[in-house]
Design a protein around this nucleic acid. Sequence first.
DNA 1: CCGTATCCCAGCCGATACTG
DNA 2: CAGTATCGGCTGGGATACGG
Lengths: 147, 147
Amino acid sequence: MSAGHTAITTPGAAEGEPVISCETPQDECGVRDVLDRLGDKWSVYVVVELASGVLRFKELQRRIHGGISQRMLTLTVRRLERDGLVKRTVHPTVPPQVEYELTELGHSLTHLVKTLADWSIAHRPDIAAARRAYDGRAAQAEAGATR
Amino acid sequence: MSAGHTAITTPGAAEGEPVISCETPQDECGVRDVLDRLGDKWSVYVVVELASGVLRFKELQRRIHGGISQRMLTLTVRRLERDGLVKRTVHPTVPPQVEYELTELGHSLTHLVKTLADWSIAHRPDIAAARRAYDGRAAQAEAGATR
DNA sequence: CCGTATCCCAGCCGATACTG
DNA sequence: CAGTATCGGCTGGGATACGG
């Protein structure tokens, strides 16, 4: 991974006017850092569930969509803990009890996730329509090739 | 994948006050739709590069961080096209010439990407510090176990 | 130039079994 | 309950070669 220059311009902005500029190319502006977290299958759901409060391991597992495996939940919360997004508290009782909660940093991420979710919900019809159109065209092209 | 209920509350909101609610659990609120796009290694970079204007295939490939392979650029761009985020225009010249540009939908995503990038840049020091602290603790614990 | 087709490896992730 | 350990399938994605 490496880069020279990267920039985003909005439609409204003057052409070539950078909205995002990367001055530290060697780590890809750190964007990849966040995206990697968002990219892995479960992190977002953990953040979403923890956004509403403190949860124990099993309870967290039970709430997550589609049933995350023990293994993946462990890995996911560990990564989130390592990144300072989640706080892990072990109560030395028997049986053991471990509680997870978002840190301040973690809570600030929930706002981004909300933005993402809003966009997603707002534009889902558009995306669905685009896919149908694309798939329709593809099927038609295939039929044309056979004909 | 399936779910019963999912909600996000912000720290400021009253406890249990849902900021995000999922009424259509069967498709995970559509959030996964967006996340899957963001999650795959290259989509974001393609969107970022196209945000500043129309680009041909080879030029796009040349600009992207770390040198995306032909194969992956093709796949990425096709997915984005299918989702209606990118418009693909083939000029039937010889040699062939194909131009890529963002659609309106695609441009609206750049705003989200910018938000993500801003958050990422703003909190990178925090994350880096958290990782150092975590790794330090881990190393110490290991030393303690050996001692 | 712009792809598509094929091969192949590395890693993710689920299932399962075992500890403190 | 809350993990760790191990195995195995699946998929993402790079390298390469070829076609229009």
